[in-house]
Computed example of a mutant assay.
Amino acid sequence: MNNRMARHHQHRRGRWIALGVLIIVLVGIFYGLNTIYQSVSTSLSASYTKVNEKGGRKTDAIIRKGKPISILLMGTDTGALDRTDKGRTDTMMLITVSKSKGIHLVSIPRDTMIAIPGLESTFPQKINAVYTFTNVSDTMSTISKYLNVPVDYFALVNMGGLEKLVNQIGGIQVKSPLTFTFSTATSHDYGKKLYKFYKGQTKFKYAKDGKHFKTYSKMNGQAALAFTRMRYEDPRGDYGRTERQRLVIAQLVKQAKNPTLLLNKKFMRSISENLRTNLTTKDMLSLATGYYNPKKKVKAISVNETSLWYQGISFQVMPRLEQQHVTNQLRQSLSLKKAVTGPVLAGNATKFTIPDAVKQVLYANDSSSN
C-alpha cells in the first residue's frame, strides 16, 4: 500500500472509529440539552473513574476555562471491565478538542513497538499491552511521554459495549468484503459459536454448536463482534479488520441518528457497565454546550509506520521523524508551543537495547541522528 493510500485509509478509519466510540461515550451529550439528558445523567455518572494525574495538567480547570483538551479513547478486547483478564486496548485514539480549531484525532496503531516506561525489561512490547501491564493512569502517562503532549481525559470502552449497542438498535446489515469463517469461542475458523461470512453478501451463517448452520440477514451484537475481530484469515491483516470495523461503525452511525433508540435509562445503565471515563457528567455537558461546533470538521492526523518482524512477532515501528510530525500537529491543535517529541520507543533508553534493525527504521532519513 503506497503512502497516499495508507494516508487515505488512516483518515477514513480514524473518522469512523472515533464516531463509533463517541456514540457510546458521548451519546447523552449532544442530545443532552433537554429533559432526556436529565433522565440518563445518573447512569453516565456511574461510568466516572478518577485517575492519578501524575504531573499532568489540572483537569478540573481546563474545561471550565474553555482551553483545548485531549481525550484518550481506548477500546479493549474483553467483554467485561475490571475482570482479571483486562485484555488489550486494540483501539487507541488520541483526540484533541478546541473551540477555535475543532477536533483533531490520531489513531495509534495497536502493534506500535514500545518499551513500557518502568517495565523496560519486558521490551519489546506493543502499545496495546501498556494497559494490560499497568492501568489507565499509566497508559495515559505513557502516551503523554511518547508524544510529548498532555493527555487530560480518557474513555475506556470494552467489546461488551459495542455488542450491547448493536443489540439496542435492533441489529445491523453489513456487506462483507471477503469470505471467512470465525468462531467467537476459539478466535479461529473452528469450534462452537461459528460464523461464516461471504464476500459481497449481507447474509451469513451461524452454528452455535459449530455444525448445524442457519442463515441470517441481520447481525446482532455477537455477530458484529465476530465480523470485526477476525484478523488471521484476512490477507490484509489489521488493515482488513479495521475496514470491517469501519463498516460496522458506519451502520451504527446511520441508525443511531434516532436518539430515542439510545437515550433511555435501561440502555444507558447497561452501557455504563462497559464504560469508564474521568469525564464527569458536568464535563460532558460543558463540552456539548461550549466546545461542540458542527461547522468545524473532524481532522484526522495520519500516522505512517513501518512493518517489522522481530523475534517472530509483527510490529509497527514509528520513525522518529514521523513521531515528531505527530507531536507537532497535536501540540498545535492544543495551542501549545512547539517541542521535541518524546523518548525513543517511549521508555528509558538506558534500560533496554534497541536492535539494529529497529534503529534503521527509527532513524530512516533522519540526518540529525548521524
Rank of each mutant, 00 (worst) to 15 (best):
T228P: 02
M1P: 10
P259L: 10
N2Q: 09
R269D: 13
I62L: 15
L308Y: 11
R57K: 13
L321P: 01
E233R: 00
V51K: 14
G170V: 00
Y216G: 03
G161N: 07
S270D: 15
Y232T: 03
L285A: 15
S43D: 09
L247I: 10
T35D: 12
P259G: 08
A349E: 13
Q316C: 08
R269W: 12
D152A: 06
R331S: 06
F197R: 01
T122P: 06
L105V: 14
F213Y: 11
L362D: 01
N304Y: 14
V27C: 15
F213T: 00
F133A: 10
N158K: 08
D234S: 01
D90M: 12
Q245N: 10
T96N: 08
Q332L: 13
L194W: 02
K295P: 01
D283W: 08
K203L: 08
I127M: 09
T139G: 03
Y292G: 11
E243T: 05
P355E: 08
V344W: 03
G75W: 05
M5P: 04
F123S: 08
G160H: 02
K218N: 06
V130C: 02
N264F: 04
F352D: 00
D77V: 07
V248E: 01
G160D: 03
D209L: 02
V326D: 09
R15T: 12
V174I: 10
G221P: 09
L252V: 08
G200Y: 07
L263T: 03
K175L: 05
L275Y: 11
Q245Y: 02
L287G: 04
R269H: 14
G28I: 05
L334C: 07
P343L: 11
I127S: 02
S367W: 12
S183R: 00
Y232M: 05
R7P: 01
S368K: 15
K282I: 13
